[in-house]
Amino acid sequence: MIEIRFHGRGGQGAVTSAELMAQTAVGSGKYAQAFPSFGPERRGAPVTAFLRISDQPIRVREKIYNPDVVVVLDPSVMNVTKVDAGLKDSGVLIINSAHPAGALRQQYGFKWKITTIDALSIALEVLKVPITNTVMMGALSKVMGVATPDDVREPLQNRFGPALAPKNQEAFERAYANAKMEA
């Protein structure tokens, strides 16, 4: 079982990312579970979402305290939330940032492997809005090997419809092609 925690701000699609990744995993025959940190929904407020993917049925319903992966959709959240809290020693941080991993490691004292991707630029270029969820899904899928562009096609279609799905697919694929795990 892989446990993933998403950090973002209300409206950026952290919850949607977790949801779509779960639907993608279920669609490809795996077990998955996704849920938000429940509460009043406010655009711009820091939000957390949780995702579990497994080859076995998932029974545990507690929050994710020791994730394998942390995905940061908005770098400004790192200033107000300890995003790496409880991250396993073998854990991975996937961060939306224009800065290289080394710079983030220095600034925040992260001791884990880091993948950075300039998701904001890709989102603005492809989607024309600063919503980074499908880009970050692409980076996560590539780095952790949890989904392929083909796997997400149907879930993206169901969620975004014929007008927006192709652009989100493109955003996913741009990140999927470019994301690289720090050596």
Binding site: A18, E19, A22, Q23, V26, Y31, A32, Q33, A34, F35, P36, F38, R61
Partner: peptide, 10 residues
């Protein structure tokens, strides 16, 4: 509520 109602599950 939430811990079941708002979970995405297979």
């Amino acid at each position: 509520g939430f811990t079941l109602s708002h979970f995405i599950e297979p």
